[in-house]
Amino acid sequence: MTSETPPLKAWLLLGLLALIWGSSFLLIKKGLLGFAPDQLAAIRIASAGFVLLPFILKRFKTVQPHHWLKLICVGLVGSFIPAFLFAFAQTELPSGVTGVLNTFTPLATLIIGIALFKQTALVQQWIGVVIGLVGTLLLVTATANGDFEFNRYGLLIIAATICYGLNLNLIKHHIPDLGALTITGVSLFLVAPAALIYLLFATPFTAQVTQPELWFPLGAILVLGIIGTAMALVIFNTVVKITDTTFTSSVTYLIPIVALILGILDGEPFFIQQGVGLAAILSGVWIANRRKRQPFNTQR
């Protein structure tokens, strides 16, 4: 359907996906009101991994022996590690800012593809990366009085986008023979037991769940894992199936807008630098994803 106008169903699902993923940063913020960052990440991964199990049981037979180590790596760099990085970063960063910084993922994917997987790059793509980096710098240094003060917690989000970029390149170049739902569902399930064991035996979670004041933060985290990860994955694959990846990738531009709006509604400040940074990152992503004819080969 790449040459046809996307159906109304695709637009509605795309909007729903943007709302789900855009609100995930606010859910992290609410979850941190009652739980430590490491607990939040463990609950998120465990809930997402086990809730997807019914959807992937029949898909295990398509996984070959040479896939298992690769899928564990996908689970670690694509879900497990980023979940912890986002949780710790949001102890010092507003949810809206983390949502915008997450938009650096397409550029991180491009950089890693060029550096590690011998992809070619267009001149315009390098321009997009530079613009995106400028926007990122603005976001991690923005202050209320207009000055610039570096916030090292922003580096945790950048590290998470690098993990996402490595994950996407790993899937593209080393696991092209498995479907997206199989890769994500199986990889999440492989790391979910470790997250659950850590949560139950290395944190005071079992004692905390009996406290009524912690039920709301716990609910926010469960929604983050079950809906923000598992359900969003199903929606994402559905949109790709009825349209194409180009249309689905446009959710990249909607997520930070949703994250910022929800953050502002929750009382978070919004600085001029953040607006400029958002515009720069989105412009960089748009420029880097435009198609040109002549590639600039970086592997000389």
Score class of each variant (00 low, 15 high):
T2M: 14
T5K: 13
P6W: 03
P6V: 03
P7H: 01
K9E: 14
W11I: 06
L14K: 02
A18N: 07
L19F: 13
L19D: 08
W21F: 00
S23M: 10
F25Y: 01
I28Q: 06
G34M: 11
A36L: 09
A36S: 15
A36K: 11
Q39E: 15
A41R: 03
A46H: 10
A46Q: 11
L53Y: 09
L57K: 08
K58S: 05
R59E: 15
F60H: 01
F60E: 00
K61I: 13
P65H: 08
H66K: 10
H66E: 14
L69S: 10
L71M: 05
L71D: 08
G75A: 06
G75F: 03
G75D: 10
L76F: 03
L76K: 03
G78D: 02
F80N: 01
I81T: 02
F84N: 05
E92I: 12
P94G: 08
S95Y: 13
S95H: 12
V97H: 00
T98R: 01
V100Q: 07
L101F: 00
N102T: 01
T103P: 02
F104H: 07
T105P: 07
I112K: 10
I114T: 13
Q119D: 11
Q119R: 10
V123K: 15
V129T: 09
I131T: 05
L137R: 06
L137C: 12
N145L: 11
G146M: 00
N151F: 05
N151S: 10
R152A: 14
Y153T: 02
G154F: 11
I158Y: 04
A159Q: 11
A160P: 09
C163F: 12
N167M: 08
N167W: 04
L168M: 06
L170F: 10
L170I: 14
L170E: 11
L181H: 04
T182F: 01
T182Q: 09
L188D: 13
L188A: 06
V191I: 14
P193K: 10
P193F: 06
A194D: 02
Y198Q: 07
L199C: 12
F201K: 08
F201S: 11
F205N: 12
T206Q: 12
Q208D: 14
P212T: 07
E213V: 04
E213H: 15
L214H: 00
L214T: 02
W215S: 10
W215I: 08
V223W: 13
V223D: 02
V223S: 05
A230M: 11
A230T: 15
M231K: 04
M231F: 03
L233G: 15
V234S: 07
F236L: 07
N237G: 08
V239H: 02
K241M: 07
D244M: 06
D244H: 05
T246A: 15
T248I: 08
S249N: 14
I257Y: 01
L260K: 12
L262E: 05
D266G: 07
Q274L: 13
Q274E: 15
V276I: 13
A279N: 06
G284W: 04
G284C: 05
V285Y: 09
W286C: 03
N289V: 04
N289Y: 04
R290T: 02
K292P: 08
Q294K: 14
N297C: 01
Q299V: 09
